[in-house]
Computed example of a mutant assay.
Amino acid sequence: MRKLVLYTLMSMDGVAEAPDRYVFEFDEVMYANLARTIKSQDAVLLGRRTYDEWAPYWPTAEEQPFADFINGAPKFLFSSAPPAVGWANTTVVPAPATEYVRTLKERPGGDIGIHGSIRLAQALLAADLVDELRLVISPVVLGTGRRLLGDGDEQLRRWNLLRLEGTPSGAVLADYELSRT
């Protein structure tokens, strides 16, 4: 069965929206971490808000290694309406995300990634469909903003630490695997 891997940038207090507000430097260790994460992924899940922000930007962007990856990977957009801007390799999925992702995980292939898409990520976390978290924690406290974790989901989940590394810019890379026991 394929793994669903959630990669997200966040502040020390858990804010995950608008990373341009708190990630001031993306250093070489962070780039290597991103490359390691996307290397095993062959599909990406996107919510509508992230898609609408990314679709006009990434097709002409030059930030590597993510630009080549996100433009070439099959993308599954969870939305009840077609997007205003098209993007190569995108499939619009009107079905409930949890049902579709369960089926997608059973198909052959590499890891499935979630990048951004806070609301979608929260729904998949609540349904126990996320297998790994790859967090990039920036050394900034924002105080306000949408958080990925602890935003009304009261179900206890235990995560096992797989990897912990500091970066030259002061960020912390923390990889966790969902404990299924």
Rank of each mutant, 00 (worst) to 15 (best):
Y100R: 14
F69N: 05
I118W: 05
A81K: 15
S79N: 01
K75D: 05
R102H: 07
T98S: 12
P94Q: 00
Q122W: 06
W54H: 03
A84Y: 10
A97C: 07
F66Y: 11
W54C: 06
N71C: 14
P108G: 11
L77Q: 07
W54F: 06
I114S: 03
D52E: 15
T91N: 11
V101N: 08
L125V: 10
K105P: 04
L77I: 07
G113E: 03
G72H: 05
I70H: 01
I114M: 09
T91S: 14
Y57R: 15
Y100D: 00
F76L: 10
F69T: 04
R107Q: 15
Q64F: 05
E53Y: 12
P56C: 11
A67Q: 04
G72T: 05
G113R: 03
W58E: 01
T90Y: 02
G72P: 00
P65K: 00
R119T: 14
V101L: 11
W87G: 01
V92W: 02
R107V: 09
G86N: 13
R102P: 03
A84I: 15
P82D: 13
Y57Q: 15
A81D: 06
E106C: 12
Y100M: 00
D68M: 01
T103Y: 08
E99Y: 06
A67K: 01
T98Q: 14
V101H: 05
Y51C: 04
S79R: 00
W58F: 02
S117I: 02
A84V: 15
R119I: 10
R102I: 05
W87H: 03
P96M: 10
G72R: 09
T60I: 08
F69W: 03
N71T: 14
P108K: 13
A81C: 08
G116D: 01
P74A: 05
E106D: 15
G116Q: 04
A95V: 09
P108H: 12
I118C: 04
L104F: 01
V101M: 10
P108A: 08
G86L: 15
A67D: 06
E99K: 13
N71G: 13
V101I: 12
A88S: 11
E106R: 14
Y51N: 08
P65T: 09
R107C: 10
Q122I: 12
A67E: 07
E99M: 13
P82Q: 12
Y51S: 06
A67M: 06
F66L: 15
E99R: 14
H115C: 13
V93T: 10
A88N: 07
D68Q: 05
E63L: 11
K75Y: 05
E63H: 11
W54Y: 03
R102V: 08
T91L: 14
I118M: 12
